[in-house]
């Protein structure tokens, strides 16, 4: 399970993409689970007021189910202009 990172999440994690550890994938069943796992692993993510999760190029609410082959992206708002 790979999560693509954008904006400030890339800076927080320090990478463009993140591979979920094999032993965690089983417990990450929904977008909400993924969010919690990422926030526990990278506590700075908790400070973001809005953080969009996209699954297979669509906006995904926390109750959306995930499987190993989903393409996931973490998208925060960006403000520069």
């Amino acid at each position: 399970m790979t999560v693509l990172l954008f904006g400030v999440t890339r800076d927080i994690v320090g990478a463009e993409a993140l591979e979920m550890p094999v032993d965690k994938v089983g417990s990450i069943r929904t977008v909400g689970d993924l969010r919690s796992y990422l926030q526990d692993t990278f506590p700075s993510l908790k400070n973001l007021s809005s953080l969009l999760v996209a699954v297979n190029n669509s906006y995904a609410e926390d109750d959306i189910k995930l499987d190993n082959f989903d393409e996931i992206a973490l998208i925060p708002p960006v403000s520069g202009g």
Binding site: S49, S50, S79, G80
Partner: peptide, 28 residues
């Protein structure tokens, strides 16, 4: 909108379409 080497683009509130807050409900 921009961040470092990235950009975001969309058209909001077009013909009853979704808005900025539908993507990012709360202001950072």
């Amino acid at each position: 909108a921009l961040h470092a080497f990235e950009g975001q683009l969309s058209v909001f509130n077009y013909r009853e379409g979704p808005t900025y807050r539908c993507l990012f409900p709360n202001m950072p």
